[in-house]
Design a protein around this nucleic acid. Structure first.
Length: 556
RNA sequence: GUCCCAGUAGCUCAGCUGGAUAGAGCAACAGCCUUCUAAGCUGUGGGUCGCAGGUUCGAAUCCUGCCUGGGACGCCA
């Protein structure tokens, strides 16, 4: 439990009690008390708008209500120093100076656990993300998915959820046959035969690699082989090759999955049949034009969807329904999919399918990641995966580094399109906020080293009440907010809150650094307190960066 | 035509459950290193929050309509 939240809770209770004592409203009609931290210092440490909220019910002017509340407030209860009424009816609270005093000790004691909360109450969350077809390289847009999904999972974990990260491998559809035929063409090309890549084939460099590797390992063996046998082998070979590459690239990007789930396994284990049986039993399917349809319109979809095509094959949707049934059967409290903006139209039919299966659709949620446009010299670069002109994740990492790429992609709202300027990400300059934050961490490291070298007590007792300078109070307030930032970022699935926070914290640190001297031989008491403060800031920045999957360097 | 996302400072973007004078970075301008890392700090200028209505004590935020840009509307995946 963190200090700030406790203080706020006590304060809220005191306010609620005052409202009741003033007879403004019946207990049943009591609105929830909202506390905010004002931007202006003149508006106190906390403020509430409760008087305005009550204006209607109590049929009184907000300022009058505010006065009633204040006169019934038990100031002794919550470290309140002073209360003001301001503006249209805000009640501003100025806290006793030491209300922030325990924060440093709390942070130091919690260490790398500082910031963790249990707001998730152990709920089990499953997050499926990336899930790129194993037919080519991960490119820029996938990097955004990977960074977002991974940080989201970290946030869930840090806020008391139990998370499973899952990658759905599309290893059963047409595209895998296309992969096999593309590999075949590259294999023959490696042999010197000018076989063309099929129309729907993949033209990425990775396929050339596969063809060459295959040719080196197997020589001419497959040239004269039975075509069906050859394709079957090339399919499984290509799949393995691609999956390994995906795994390695993601690992390098510091993204790991708890489970790689094979679409093919849904066929092999009869899960698709089972799901179809349920849909049929519940009478949400019908036959028309030689195909089997799902009555998704009964659940708000624009039109019904085909489950089994005229040719007897499943559409993409069908195994995916079985997959989601299986997710539900595993007992998750939340099932989250991270999809690209171009798939948003897929959401209504998936929701419909879940309801048709008889499962609670509230558990299902989709986070949409909008497009990434690559920008070079101010102009958008057209990318095409099929044509092989997309910039791969690997190239991106090579150019800008994992830290910068991850930070950059999580910095903005996932729902906004993003222009990614390669040169900007590449530039190790002040345009890159990740360096700014890392620098703050490294700066503290250096200070602490200096402190040791100069013989200051680094791990001793300290008196936090000496931390009264503006910049210190600013740091303390920000430190105290960290657990709440994590909880809110998780709840709203908004990792950009975390980058924003850690940037602000770094900013406060730099500002403090330039305003005050930490190591002061003439004031050992204050020095001890400030060293403790620095350690707390360092821990908090490191914890935040860890959630972002960004390194916290000791020196730069 | 229907649906989704976006439109906020010159540029890139934040903006919480509706709150007080709408923020940050970059760019521009003016300062700060014999002192713990100047990859930093301090200050200045810069805004009809796309447009028009509505809801209310109060709207960048919620509702409706419209405009602009992007995306999606398949028995592809």
């Amino acid at each position: 439990m963190n200090i700030l939240a406790q203080t706020e809770e006590t304060l809220k209770q005191a306010i609620a009690q005052a409202v009741l004592n003033a007879g403004l409203v019946a207990e049943a009609d009591m609105p929830s008390i909202v506390l905010e931290t004002p931007k202006e210092k003149a508006h106190g440490d906390f403020a509430t708008n409760i008087a305005m909220q009550l204006a209607r019910v109590a049929k009184k002017a907000p300022r009058q209500i505010a006065e009633d509340i204040v006169s019934h407030l038990d100031k002794s209860r919550a470290s309140i120093q002073q209360v003001d009424i301001a503006g249209p009816g805000f009640i501003n609270f100025f806290m006793k100076q030491d209300y922030l005093g325990d924060i440093v000790a709390t942070v130091l004691e919690a260490g790398e656990d500082y910031g963790r909360t249990n707001t998730g109450e152990g709920q089990r969350v499953q997050v499926e993300f990336v899930s790129v077809n194993p037919t080519g390289d991960l490119h820029v847009a996938h990097a955004r998915h990977a960074a977002f999904g991974d940080v989201l999972c970290n946030l869930f974990d840090a806020s008391g959820h139990k998370v499973d990260r899952e990658y759905y491998i599309n290893d059963a559809g047409n595209q895998i046959d296309n992969l096999a035929r593309s590999v075949e063409a590259r294999y023959f090309q490696a042999h010197g035969v000018d076989m063309e890549i099929p129309e729907d084939g993949y033209r990425g460099d990775d396929i050339i690699d596969i063809g060459n590797t295959l040719y080196q390992e197997h020589g001419d063996k497959w040239i004269e082989a039975d075509p069906a046998e050859r394709l079957a082998f090339f399919k499984s070979y290509g799949l393995k090759f691609e999956l390994n590459k995906l795994r390695e690239d993601l690992a390098e990007f510091r993204v790991h999955f708890d489970r790689w789930f094979s679409e093919q396994s849904l066929y092999d284990d009869g899960k698709i049949e089972a799901a179809l049986d349920v849909l049929k039993e519940r009478e949400y399917t019908y036959e028309k034009d030689g195909a089997v349809w799902l009555k998704s319109t009964e659940f708000g979809d624009d039109k019904d969807r085909v489950l089994i095509k005229q040719d007897g094959n499943y559409t993409y949707l069908t195994p995916d329904i079985a997959y989601h049934q299986y997710k539900y059967d595993r007992g998750y409290d939340k099932i989250i999919n991270v999809w690209g903006g171009d798939h948003h139209g897929y959401i209504p039919r998936m929701r419909a399918a879940i309801q048709a299966l008889g499962y609670p659709v509230e558990k299902f949620d989709v986070k949409i990641i909008q497009m990434v446009n690559l920008v070079e010299k101010g102009e958008r670069v057209k990318m095409s995966k099929r044509a092989g002109t997309a910039v791969s994740l690997r190239e991106l990492i090579g150019a800008a580094g994992v830290d910068a790429v991850r930070y950059y992609f999580v910095m903005r709202s996932n729902e906004s399109q993003l222009d990614f300027d390669v040169e900007l990400a590449r530039s190790e300059s002040n345009e890159n906020p990740v360096y700014y934050v890392q620098y703050a961490h490294a700066r503290i490291s250096t200070m602490l080293k200096q402190a040791k070298n100069k013989g200051f007590e680094v791990d001793g007792a300290f008196d936090a009440s000496l931390l009264t300078a503006d910049k210190e109070l600013d740091l303390l307030t920000k430190l105290g907010a960290f657990p709440q930032v994590i909880a809110e970022a998780a709840e709203k699935a908004a990792p950009q809150r975390l980058t924003q926070y850690v940037f602000d914290l770094a900013s406060a640190l730099h500002s403090f650094y330039n305003a005050e001297k930490v190591l002061d031989g003439d004031n050992l008491e204050l020095t001890s307190a400030r060293i403790a403060l620095m350690k707390a800031v360092k821990i908090t920045i490191a914890n935040a960066l860890k959630l972002l999957g960004v390194r916290a360097p000791e020196q730069m």
